[in-house]
Write a protein that binds this DNA or RNA. Sequence first.
DNA 1: AGGTGACATGTAATCGATTACATTTTGCGA
DNA 2: TCGCAAAATGTAATCGATTACATGTCACCT
Lengths: 332, 332
Amino acid sequence: MNIKEVATKARVSTATVSRTMNGNPLVSPKTADKVWRAIRELGYYPNSHARTLVSGRSRLLGLIISDIANPFFPELVKGFEDTAIQRDYNVMVSNTGYDSTRMAIAVRRMIEHQVDGVAIMTSEIDRHLVDELSKRSVPMVFLDVGMVKKRVSNVCVDYAAGIRESIDHLHELGHRRIAFISGPMDLKSARVRRKAFQKFVEAKQLQQDSSLIVEGNHKIDGGQAAMNKLLALRRPPTAVLTSNDLSAIGALRAIHAAGLQVPGDISLIGFDDIELSQYTDPPLTTVRLSRQELGRTAFEALMNIIDGVSDSGAEFAVSTHLIVRESTSPGR
Amino acid sequence: MNIKEVATKARVSTATVSRTMNGNPLVSPKTADKVWRAIRELGYYPNSHARTLVSGRSRLLGLIISDIANPFFPELVKGFEDTAIQRDYNVMVSNTGYDSTRMAIAVRRMIEHQVDGVAIMTSEIDRHLVDELSKRSVPMVFLDVGMVKKRVSNVCVDYAAGIRESIDHLHELGHRRIAFISGPMDLKSARVRRKAFQKFVEAKQLQQDSSLIVEGNHKIDGGQAAMNKLLALRRPPTAVLTSNDLSAIGALRAIHAAGLQVPGDISLIGFDDIELSQYTDPPLTTVRLSRQELGRTAFEALMNIIDGVSDSGAEFAVSTHLIVRESTSPGR
DNA sequence: AGGTGACATGTAATCGATTACATTTTGCGA
DNA sequence: TCGCAAAATGTAATCGATTACATGTCACCT
């Protein structure tokens, strides 16, 4: 079943069939009708590989993420994919599993499939692999790596906005001794969040104390360990901000394990607003980062390069804001 | 950058390059060496579309799911994809968003991309679309739809195993009046679960009462509404089984809202073991259904057809078992 | 030395679309 | 009615690999 059969059945040439399918206005309505009828009657679907081969455009985008089972990503994928489908693009998703070998495989596959662009939404990025894509001038978009150049854009999350809101919120509630459980320091976005925390704590003239900033790992166990350190302090904080929700959930466990209450004894604010955070006990006050919007924005960023709107690459921002639930209350 | 350039650089023909890349043993080691060197030096990656076009095999599998943001799916996708990558296959994931138009689009894209097989893991399936795939003899695998025929396999979850365990568990704890919050009755898997519940309740000679079976919708609100109905009964149950975890979480809310305790007043068992269920308050006793295994099995099922191991299609089972956490305890 | 078979390599057709260019048809004005 | 531009359609080259078939090379045996 190929274009030739359709052409034969419609009594036209393959060129006309192709033109009809692609909405070329040169085809007369009468002919177009014949062609569509033939297509329908034969149940013909064009072969995308043949199409790509000759046209050089695959209408396929790569989306590289760390781990689809990490609750951060599914929504991002959804935002990206939904938008892509609407614009008649396909998406090839690849998990790296935080493993650079898999990352290399993913990039190789993207190139082999002639993707029209790649969104690399992992935190770790491999300079070498990026070069491989650059060499072929594949449009790219990154998440939070401040590298904008020819055909490379960047979506960056305005972490600071949400963190400022959080601190304002806690400040209003009367908290003055606020701790921060950070993410792993080799992660740029984690560094940005910590820096924002420091900046606003300073701005509000709250108590600054280096022991109030503890490093976690953006996972539950790390949050738990970090919180235990904070609880062991001579003067523990009355409120804790965390670098992501998973850390906050770990902290929550540590607090409960210590026989204390949230928010009664300690107020707690997460970051990301993963689905889970509305079901914790108590429901977590957290900073929402719309992953769907992130996905959508990444897609648009790619499209801007692909459609030649801006060949130079640009910076896109996605904002964050505080969602107040029940893990915060006035301090004692 | 194509095979011809490599051939020129290595001073061999394109056929030899192709043979080398595909590990054809006819190529002498010396020549192979030259070719690999040229490939490396040029940074050559083969064009998968050209490859697919001539060979007819795309090494691409379709995976159609309802909604990647539904916590049931990410792990399934992961299991499927990880296995696929290992076997050098690519995966094209499509969300239908429970919408038949999107489902049609997904199928169309799969066909246009000449996928070597499709795993359709949605609950709703469209007879017509399946025919479209059948017509092209694309291998398929479904989830829980008992349809096995030529080139169509089926992965089915042994829901009954976990439900039997649940009822045994509750029975041992002394519960005799056990309710069931079902899923929507137009969903086959939901019907299967309910039927299993009825069967084992009967087997254990527990109290049977049609008002103890309430229909939910596999979402939180439905579970909540259903639980409220149960609480309004003259004699409410002492334990409740639910058709999925989301329903259980809804039920949990309803119980708390009524000022009752879990498991003190009512024991509760979920189904699926989504990540969330270990973080509820109390952590949910639930039936684990390994989504990763489901994904892996779906992949293997497809491979069996593709590799011609069994052209006729087969039935694959994935089992379930009870995970006891803290939402169950002896009845009063 | 010549013949034979095994091994190695090359030539060119092929997959199914798109599209530049060529050709035919149509409509309209003179 | 004829001429000519515009519109419609057709012909064939092309994309980049695979692979059937053709050809070439070499070692070894008689």
